[in-house]
Amino acid sequence: MLTDTLAKAILDLEEEQVIVLVKERLAKGDSPLDIVESLQKGMSEVGKLFETGEFFLSELVMCGEIMKDAMDVLEPHLIDSHSGNKGNIVVGTVKGDIHDLGKNIVVMLLKGAGYNVIDLGVDVPIEKFVEAAKESKAPLVGMSVLLTGCQEAMKQTIDAIRAEGLNTKVIIGGNYIDELVREYVGADYFANNASDGLKVAKQIFS
């Protein structure tokens, strides 16, 4: 059971109450990072309920929206606090694919879990993935894809990352992805939903 009222408000998807509580705690002088932690606690409960089938995509999308609004309030207060960062993860939708919903859910859950996510957006060229992986030295690169027709682009991107000799793991995510696709494009992991993706991240950063 959640005893934290803010985390509980997130779990109950009470958007107005969440914003009120965030502002109250800021006014009380609570550390913004503690507030983020409460938000994360609530969101992780939401993620669990999604995994067990009690919550649906509509709840996940609502939760994402509430988190976004809460983070907008918190952001100015967070600028100087870098602690609590579990590490860098590069995420993007592969070249030729402009779908961002799956990617955005993953990004939200990863950020919520305390990772520093470098979000490259959609239709990301191969070089951009390589460059970001190099610069950030991220141990994990996530590629999102909806269209099966874009798997060649995914394969080429992964080949390019390997060719640079980067020591980074690659996870691919998408509705139609399975072990066959993972093997074909040469990724290390695959996920069909955001929570599986989160589990892989936990494993890599542990």
Partner: peptide, 10 residues
């Protein structure tokens, strides 16, 4: 849009 209508439901 998908996000829009899912939020509308609430």
């Amino acid at each position: 849009s998908m996000k829009g209508i899912l939020l509308d439901l609430r």
